[in-house]
């Protein structure tokens, strides 16, 4: 076995842990984003101008602001810890949590518009809606997963961050192999999600055809 293969094999558990952090950050961002998008739409729908316009304004602001800027904004301006009882109890806010909150902006906007466009439909079918929503959530998760890599820039120990640690600890000659190996993690995982989306899409079109026949 070549030295590069040995190196990759040795560091696989370490890199895998980093990738799990990416998945965790993206999942939490999706959870926050989807629920906030849903809540925002529910609260703003059909309400007076005073209630709906601030929410719409916030959604427009988040839609036109890059996640990385929000990430740096939270990372720099939000406190790293909150101190209670005159220093007796310190609540630490980890950087991965800030990353999740910042990255939740994109799925929040995406889900807000999806919920709103669904509400505008004349005869919504709940079953089709569920199928479509699962697809949209998975698509949004793929994008958030890719975006989670930028959290390495604010010091979160995720996959790319760990790649840099390994390269620095071993040798820059391994950079190509290690970065390519990291690409495999993302491509493999996202390819699997894409297959699920396609499978659900096929099932949805089959169910649509059956409904039309009946």
């Amino acid at each position: 076995m070549s030295a590069t293969m040995m190196l990759l094999l040795t560091w696989t558990p370490y890199m895998l842990q980093g990738f799990l952090t990416n998945i965790g950050i993206a999942s939490l961002a999706m959870l926050i984003g989807t629920s906030m998008g849903f809540l925002g739409e529910r609260v703003s729908h059909g309400k007076a101008w005073m209630i709906s316009s601030p929410i719409r304004g916030a959604i427009t602001f988040l839609r036109n602001t890059p996640s990385l800027i929000l990430l740096f904004y939270l990372s720099i301006l939000a406190p790293n810890e909150i101190i209670f009882a005159n220093g007796g109890w310190v609540l630490t806010i980890p950087s991965w949590l800030k990353a999740s909150v910042a990255l939740s902006a994109s799925p929040m906007v995406f889900m807000y518009w999806n919920f709103e466009s669904w509400r505008r439909r004349k005869n919504p079918d709940r079953h089709i809606w569920h199928m479509e929503m699962v697809n949209r959530i998975l698509e949004s998760f793929m994008i958030t997963m890719l975006a989670s890599s930028v959290s390495s820039l604010v010091g979160v120990s995720e996959l790319i961050s760990r790649c840099n640690v390994i390269i620095n600890a071993s040798s820059t000659t391994n950079a190509f192999a290690i970065y390519s190996y990291a690409c495999l993690y993302f491509c493999g995982f996202l390819f699997a999600i894409q297959r699920i989306i396609r499978m659900l899409g096929n099932r949805q079109s089959q169910s649509n055809t059956r409904q039309e026949e009946s």
Partner: peptide, 23 residues
């Protein structure tokens, strides 16, 4: 195209800038 859209742009930049261009 699949690799292009499933690899984070940041990772692509590191790969090209530090690994390929470095070589």
């Amino acid at each position: 195209a699949n690799t292009g859209r499933m690899t984070p742009p940041l990772l692509q930049m590191y790969l090209i800038y530090f690994a390929v261009c470095g070589y």
